[in-house]
Design a protein around this nucleic acid. Structure first.
Lengths: 242, 242
DNA sequence: TTAAATTCGCTGTATAGACGATTAATCGAC
DNA sequence: GTCGATTAATCGTCTATACAGCGAATTTAA
């Protein structure tokens, strides 16, 4: 029996969501199984039905549950990477999975934006941007080159931060900027001389090339990055919802 | 002044969402601008505040609006591909954007699943799968090879469908299966002899290689596809939300 | 026996109101 | 003038209830 704490600052629907999620991960509720009806859950938790629905809705968005109008709510079959559908930084993911990731800053400077960078960041060509070029290693093997651009006028102190151990988004968060969304464009390309040298591979071999623009919740672009990933060592998994 | 139709089977929150979306796209509500408070909108539309919130929530998920607790709800800065964050088939997208896409079916047969396909579709090795190999053209230039596998026991009649003009997901929809989610893994690879021949390119040039598993809302996998995209003609744009 | 109608359980939509939490603006004391 | 407290506006959470709409099971009728 789950009793909710009324007064801990934690919303009731959050507690309900947690309780249901626990039941699912602990297989108290098995895949395919019908969970109690919203009325029953409302009675069990001692809340109104709308509050139960709010808790359930989040789990449906996550793909843990699904509803059948007129029938009930069911536990979905677990599928790999069910939880990977949200935007997370590579650094966060690596930490969680115990991957030995290290970052070397190659360049950190301030310069006028070229056309493409300016357009991506909603700036004028020539506006100042902070530029950080990094090389990332996994278990000491070079894997990715990043060229990141951030509007100087938004973050003039950025270069004083420790960019090798803190992820950019965490730094932005600490400034109160809420990173919300990333648009990424992917291509397969041949490695040019510079990238091949940095990634210790032969020129012409395939590179997973990525252009990424990162936005705050109000739609302001705050980061534009070119990524060059070694094709034989890097794969990207993404999850899309309909 | 917007008056909602009470009795057309269209939920009020859907009508409110549409009204707000129209105001945004027609710039009646400009980016950055505060929209009327929930109480004002409730009064204007003649509905309760909860109904207004339901309409607004959808637009927030889409990134069209954002909320500031204690302050108000605002129109987000428009950003390119704001609307591309949902799972849509390439065919759907192409149609909307007027791209001249054609599909040629190279192989359509039924065979026992190999290990990887079986695992991806939650089958046993050797279980029958429907296999469809297609070559896709944009303005008559070959661009992509697809190897698609679907569990035979779920769709025994699939090969009787017109696979060149109807997208697989539309066919599944017509059977009542709700496609909900796709997990895709991307790599950059070199083209092997067969792919190079089909895509009319040189062996060894970069290919954007993609493995895709498609799930219904109940978590059942229904499609597994290997995609080989010509690196110089294909780029993939994805949007991630935090 | 089969087909149509009914019932029942459940989710979907909607209401009207209450109080809490956050933010920005205003006002007052020092 | 500056700082702090008050206030108003607004979103966040929650209630208790009502009826509509769907789907499956059951009952009824042909």
């Amino acid at each position: 029996m789950s009793v909710l704490k009324k007064s801990e600052g934690i919303p009731l629907y959050t507690q309900i969501r947690k309780s249901l999620r626990d039941d699912i991960t602990k297989k108290v509720l098995a895949p395919g199984q019908k969970i109690p009806s919203e009325d029953e859950l409302a009675a069990k938790f001692g809340v109104s039905r709308m509050t139960v629905r709010q808790g359930i809705s989040d789990l449906i968005d996550e793909g843990l549950l699904y509803r059948r109008h007129g029938v009930g709510t069911f536990v979905a079959q677990p599928h790999f990477e069910r939880d990977h559908s949200r935007l997370t930084s590579f650094v966060e993911t690596a930490k969680e999975e115990g991957i030995d990731l290290s970052i070397r800053v190659l360049i950190a400077d301030i310069l006028p934006a070229k056309l493409k960078v300016a357009q991506s960041l909603s700036l004028e060509e020539g506006d100042l941007v902070v530029h950080v070029k990094t090389l990332r290693f996994i278990t000491n093997l070079p894997i990715t080159v990043h060229d990141t651009y951030v509007p100087y006028k938004l973050f003039p102190q950025l270069l004083q931060e420790d960019l090798e151990s803190h992820h950019l988004w965490d730094i932005l968060d600490s400034y109160g900027f809420r990173v919300k969304r990333a648009v990424q464009r992917l291509e397969a390309r041949e490695a040019d001389e510079e990238i091949a040298r940095l990634l210790e591979m032969d020129e012409g071999l395939p590179i997973l090339y990525k252009e990424r623009t990162v936005y705050l919740d109000n739609g302001t672009p705050v980061e534009f990055t070119y990524c060059y990933n070694r094709g034989d060592r890097y794969s990207l998994t993404i999850v899309l919802n309909r």
